[in-house]
Write a protein that binds this DNA or RNA. Structure first.
Length: 898
RNA sequence: GGGUUCAUAGCUCAGCUGGUUCAGAGCACCUGCCUUACAAGCAGGGGGUCACAGGUUCGAAUCCUGUUGAACCCA
C-alpha cells in the first residue's frame, strides 16, 4: 500500500465535509436517548467569521461531538443574528459608497437592501462554519429576524408591557447629528491624545449686585440651556453665594446657585454651569435639585427657538460657538480664554462630535424580573466556567440598571407601540395593527379611530432584546401553539421539541457579553419557562495576536481563517487554537500553533503508516509484545479517566493536551518503539490487532478535536463499522497503580541509559552490555525489562561477579549501572569529580531530611504519610551515599595505581 | 472614582482544601542524530530566589496584611 509520507488534509477534509453534509449526519430528532443541546451564539451578519468565532465554534463542536459519542442525542442549533446597530452601519456605509444616502430612502427600501446584505453575509458565515467541521443540525438554522422569531420578539415586548415591566422614560443618549441617530457607548470613540479645545471663562452676575461668579466652559453654545450654577458645598470661596440667584449672560435668565458634591473644586474655577439637556452629569444634578430641562438643540445639531436668541436659531452648534465669543466679548462678560486638551467623543462612523442629548426611550424595569437569575447562578444550577466570573456576575445583578431597549434605527424589530395623539400617554402597545386600533379606540374613547390614524413608533429594539430569547425561540417557544398569552408563560406540554431539548447543556461565549446576553437569557428563561436556559456557561477568551493586541481590521493583524485552513488543514487550525486557550483566558494567537497542529496530524498519519506496514504471523505474543500491550492498556485506561475528568471540568485545552501527550509520547514514542518488530521480522497477529485497536481508541479520543483525519483513518481501520463520529467513546478502565510506577522506573532507566550513551558518544546502532552488582540483580526481573533492553539499545544486562575498576557508572532508578571501558579511555579525575559532586549533593539532601526528622514539632504535627515519606527519603539517600562512597574509594585506588 | 480578576521558566499556562520533587506541561532555546513511520522527525539537555516587603506555621508558590504593576467591567 502506497501512502504518502506527508499528510495532505485538503482532499480528505473535502471528502468528509461532503459526506457528512449529504447524509445529514448531524441532524437530530427527539428520541429515547438523553438530549445534549447547544445553541450557537449567533454570529452577527455584519461580515465574515473571525478568529474569535473560529475558537468559539471549535469548542462547541468539540463538546457536541464528544456528547454524540457518549450516546447523547446531540443537537447543535446554528443561526445568525441581525445585529441591528452593527449591520445597519455596514449597510449605510455600503449605500454611501454607491452614492445613496439613507435619508433619501424609505424605510421599506432601506430594509430591502439590508435583507440583501443579510442573505449574502449570513450565507458566507454558515458556509464557513461548515468548513470548520461544525456538526450543527443545519435544518434548524435560525435567524433572529425570521418570521416566527420576529413575532416572538414583538410578543415578548407586548407581554412585558402588559406585565408592567416596560415603560417610557427620558434618558441621556449619545447623538450623532450627522447620521441623526443615537449611538451606543461602543460607537463613540475618543482620540487617545485628546483634542485641543478652548476654555471660555464667563462672568455670571449675582442678582442685585455687581458681584459675579466665573464659570469655565468649553461649550459656550450651551449657555442658553443653563438652569443653575453649582459649587461644591465645602468650597469656602463660594459658600456665601449658595441660595442666591445668578444671571445667565446673553439671555438674562435668572437661575439658582446650588451646592452639589459632584462639582470638583480644583477643576476650572470650581463653578459649574448646569445644563441638564446637554450633559449627562448635569442631568443627574438637575434631577437631584429639581431643575427644569431646556433642550436648545435640533436633531441635526442646529439650535432651536428655545435658545432664546433669534439670530442663532437654525445655525449649527459650532457656528454658534464662534458667534458666542463675540457676543460674550461685546457683553463684557468674557474674562479670558485658555487652550486645553480634553476628551472629545466622536461618532465611529461619521466622525462628527457626539452631542449628549435627552431623549424619550423605552425601558425594561430590571430589578424584579432579574431576581431569580442571580439565584440560579448562586445556587449552582447554572455553573460558570471558570467559576471566578460568578463575582462579576453577582456584582452586575445586584446593581442591575433598567435596560434601554429602543434604538433609533430601521434594521431590527420595530417597537409595537402605536401613537394616536401627541400626549405623552396617547399610545397603545399591541402585536398587530388591528389589535392596536381596537385598544386605541378603548383607551382614547374615540370609536372612530382607524388604522391610518395610528403612527407606529419608528424605532427598533436593541439587538439583545431579541437574542435573549434565543434558547427558547430556536425551538419555537413563543409560537402560537405553546405561548400562553394570558399567563405570559410558555406551556411546555404543547411543544415537544422544546420540552425535549430545553434546558440546553452549555453555552459557549465570551465574558464580555456576560451581562449583555448571558444574564438576559437567564432572565428570559426564568420569566417565560421558569427554567434555566443552560446548565453550564463556558467563557472563552478574546483571540489576540501574539503581541497581545486585540485583532482588528485596522491593525491588519487578524489572519484569514479560510486561508489558514487552506494552508494547514482545518484539523490543524482547530487544534492550534485550542492548544493555548484555557477557559476565560485570552488566546495569544500565533500561526505557529497551527503549524504545531499540522505536525501533529502528520505524526498521526505516520503512526498509521507504520502499523499498516506490519505483516503479522499467527503465534502467541512474545514477552516484549505482551509487556507493551499490557502497559499501553494501562496508559489508555488512565488517560481516558483523566480526559473525562478534564471535560467534566470544562478544561478543554488540557483535555486536548492529554490526548496529544497520549498519542505522541505514550503511543508513538514509547509503545510503538517498544513493540515494533525489527526490520524484516513479523509481529504476532494478536499484537497487531491490539495495536490497531489502541489506535482506533486514540482516534476516538481525538475525534472531537480533529474530526477529519480521525474519520479518515477510522474508515481505513474499522472496515465498515460506520463513522467515528457515531462510535462509542472509549471507557475509562481500572488503573493498576503498580504498573504505572513500574513503568516510571523503567522509563527513567531508559532515559538515563540514553543520556549516558549520548555523553559517551555511543552511536545508536551500537548495542552495548551493561552490568549491575548482585544486590541490584532484581532489575533483570523488572516487568518491563524488555523495554529497557530494546529502547536502551542494550545487548544485555548482566550481573557483575568480579570487581572491575576501569568502568564508568551511572545511577538510575536507585540502581548503579556499570559500563566497562578500556583503561586508557577512563578519565579518572573527571570521573572522581563527578562522583564527588553527586556525593556532596546526596549528603546535603540527607542533612535537610535529618533536620526535619530531628524537629520535635514536625514529628508531633506532621501527618503519618508525610513522616513516612521523609523516612523513605532518608533510606534512599543513605543507600546512595554508600554506593557513591564505595565508588569513590575505588577511583582513588585506581588513581594511586596510575 | 467604584468593582472584579490576576502577577509561577523567553512565551502561554497547570499547580484543588498549606507537607509524597521548593516547582510541572506545551512551545521556544542549546547539543547530537537523514536510526529502514515521521527532519512537519528522533534522542538528550539547560532554564524559575513562584512580582516586592512583612506576618501566621514545625513547614507557604499555596493562608493573612501592605506595596507595586497589569487586565476587564461599571460610572
Amino acid at each position: 500500500m502506497e501512502i504518502s509520507a506527508k499528510y495532505t488534509p485538503a482532499d480528505i477534509e473535502k471528502k468528509w465535509l461532503e459526506y457528512w453534509t449529504q447524509h445529514e449526519c448531524f441532524a437530530s430528532v427527539p428520541d429515547q436517548r438523553p438530549p445534549y443541546t447547544i445553541v450557537i451564539p449567533p454570529p452577527n451578519v455584519t461580515g465574515v467569521l473571525h478568529m474569535g468565532h473560529m475558537l468559539n465554534n471549535t469548542i462547541q463542536d468539540v463538546l457536541i461531538r464528544r456528547a454524540r459519542m457518549l450516546g447523547y442525542n446531540a443537537c447543535w442549533v446554528p443561526g445568525t443574528d441581525h445585529a441591528s446597530i452593527a449591520t445597519e452601519a455596514k449597510v449605510v456605509a455600503m449605500l454611501r459608497e454607491k452614492g445613496i444616502s439613507k435619508h433619501q430612502l424609505t424605510r421599506e427600501e432601506f430594509l430591502k437592501y439590508a435583507f440583501e446584505w443579510k442573505e449574502k453575509y449570513g450565507g458566507i458565515i454558515l458556509h464557513q462554519l461548515r468548513r470548520l467541521g461544525a456538526s450543527c443540525d443545519w435544518k434548524r438554522t435560525t435567524f433572529t429576524m425570521d418570521e416566527d422569531y420576529y413575532r416572538a420578539v414583538i410578543r415578548v415586548f407586548v407581554d412585558l408591557y402588559k406585565k408592567g415591566y416596560i415603560y417610557r422614560g427620558l434618558r441621556m443618549i449619545n447623538w450623532d447629528c450627522e447620521a441623526r441617530t443615537a449611538l451606543s457607548n461602543e460607537e463613540v470613540i475618543y482620540n487617545d491624545e485628546g483634542e485641543k479645545v478652548t476654555f471660555y471663562y464667563v462672568k455670571y452676575y449675582i442678582k442685585g449686585s455687581d458681584d459675579y461668579l466665573t464659570v469655565a466652559t468649553v461649550r459656550p453654545e450651551t449657555i442658553m440651556g443653563d438652569v443653575a450654577v453649582a459649587v461644591n458645598p465645602t468650597d469656602e470661596r463660594y459658600a456665601h453665594l449658595i441660595g442666591k440667584t445668578a444671571i445667565v449672560p446673553i439671555i438674562g435668565r435668572e437661575v439658582p446657585i446650588i451646592a452639589d458634591e459632584y462639582v470638583d473644586k480644583e477643576f476650572g474655577t470650581g463653578c459649574l454651569k448646569v445644563t441638564p439637556a446637554h450633559d449627562p452629569n448635569d442631568y443627574e444634578i438637575g434631577l437631584r435639585h429639581n431643575l427644569p430641562v431646556i433642550d436648545t438643540l435640533n436633531d441635526d445639531g442646529t439650535l432651536n427657538e428655545l435658545c432664546g436668541v433669534p439670530e442663532f436659531v437654525g445655525l449649527d452648534r459650532f457656528k454658534v460657538r464662534k458667534l458666542m465669543r463675540q457676543k460674550l466679548e461685546e457683553a463684557e462678560v468674557l474674562v479670558k480664554t485658555e487652550d486645553t486638551i480634553t476628551r472629545v467623543g466622536r461618532s465611529e462612523r461619521t466622525n462628527s462630535v457626539v452631542e449628549p442629548r435627552l431623549s424619550l426611550q423605552w425601558f425594561i424595569r430590571m430589578k424584579e424580573i432579574s431576581a431569580k437569575a442571580l439565584e440560579v447562578v448562586e445556587k449552582g444550577d447554572i455553573q460558570l466556567h471558570p467559576a471566578k466570573f460568578i463575582n462579576t456576575y453577582r456584582h452586575w445583578m445586584e446593581n442591575v440598571k433598567d435596560w434601554c431597549i429602543s434604538r433609533q434605527l430601521w434594521w431590527g424589530h420595530r417597537i409595537p407601540a402605536f401613537y394616536y395623539g401627541d400626549g405623552p400617554e396617547d399610545y397603545v402597545v399591541a402585536e398587530t395593527l388591528e389589535e392596536a386600533v381596537e385598544l386605541a379606540r378603548q383607551k382614547s374613547g374615540n370609536a372612530g379611530l382607524k388604522a391610518q390614524d395610528l403612527r407606529q413608533d419608528p424605532d427598533v429594539l436593541d439587538t439583545w432584546a431579541s437574542s435573549w430569547l434565543w434558547p427558547l425561540q430556536v425551538f419555537g417557544g413563543f409560537n402560537d401553539q405553546c405561548f400562553d398569552r394570558v399567563r405570559g408563560k410558555i406551556d411546555f406540554t404543547k411543544n415537544a421539541e422544546l420540552a425535549y431539548y430545553y434546558p440546553t447543556e452549555v453555552l459557549v461565549t465570551a465574558p464580555e457579553i456576560l451581562f449583555f446576553w448571558v444574564a438576559r437569557m437567564i432572565i428570559a428563561g426564568m420569566e417565560y419557562a421558569d427554567k434555566i436556559p443552560f446548565k453550564h456557561v463556558y467563557l472563552t477568551g478574546i483571540v489576540r495576536d501574539k503581541l497581545g493586541r486585540k485583532m482588528s481590521k485596522s491593525l491588519g493583524n487578524s489572519p484569514d481563517p479560510e486561508q489558514l485552513m487552506a494552508t494547514y488543514g482545518t484539523d490543524a487550525v482547530r487544534v492550534g487554537m485550542l492548544f493555548s486557550s484555557p477557559a476565560g483566558n485570552d488566546l495569544l494567537f500565533d500561526e505557529k500553533l497551527c503549524e504545531q497542529g499540522r505536525n501533529f496530524a502528520n505524526k498521526i498519519w505516520n503512526a498509521f503508516r507504520l502499523i499498516q506496514s506490519w505483516t503479522a504471523e499467527e503465534r502467541p505474543m512474545n514477552a516484549t509484545e505482551a509487556a507493551a500491550v499490557s502497559w499501553f492498556g494501562q496508559q489508555l485506561a488512565a488517560a481516558v479517566q483523566e480526559i473525562d475528568d478534564l471535560f467534566a471540568k470544562y478544561r478543554i485545552s488540557e483535555a486536548l493536551m492529554a490526548v496529544y501527550d497520549l498519542i505522541w509520547d505514550k503511543y508513538c514514542s514509547w509503545y510503538l518503539e517498544w513493540i515494533k518488530p525489527a526490520y524484516g521480522e513479523r509481529i504476532s497477529q494478536e499484537a497487531l490487532e491490539s495495536s490497531k485497536s489502541y489506535f482506533i481508541d486514540l482516534m476516538k479520543l481525538l475525534h472531537p478535536f480533529m474530526p477529519f483525519i480521525t474519520e479518515e483513518l477510522y474508515s481505513h481501520l474499522s472496515s465498515g463499522t460506520g463513522l467515528i463520529m457515531n462510535a462509542p467513546w472509549p471507557k475509562a478502565g481500572k488503573v493498576d497503580a503498580e504498573a504505572v510506577r513500574a513503568f516510571e522506573k523503567s522509563s527513567e532507566i531508559v532515559t538515563a541509559i540514553r543520556n549516558f550513551r549520548a555523553q559517551n558518544q555511543i552511536t545508536p546502532k551500537e548495542r552495548i552490555t551493561l552490568f549491575v552488582k548482585a544486590e541490584n540483580a532484581e532489575v533483570l526481573a523488572h516487568p518491563y525489562i524488555t523495554m529497557i533492553l530494546k529502547l536502551g539499545g542494550l545487548a544485555n544486562i548482566e550481573v557483575l561477579s568480579d570487581v572491575l575498576s576501569n568502568v564508568k557508572t551511572f545511577l538510575a532508578g536507585g540502581i548503579e549501572f556499570i559500563y566497562p571501558i578500556n583503561e586508557d579511555a577512563l578519565d579518572v579525575d573527571a570521573e572522581l569529580a563527578k562522583v564527588q559532586a553527586d556525593l556532596n549533593y546526596a549528603k546535603g539532601f540527607l542533612e535537610s531530611v535529618m533536620k526535619k526528622l530531628g524537629n520535635e514539632r514536625f514529628m508531633q504535627n506532621a501527618p503519618e504519610q508525610v513522616k513516612q515519606n521523609e523516612l523513605k527519603k532518608k533510606q534512599d539517600a543513605e543507600a546512595k551515599i554508600e554506593a557513591l562512597t564505595k565508588r569513590l574509594e575505588q577511583l582513588n585506588q585506581l588513581k594511586i595505581k596510575q
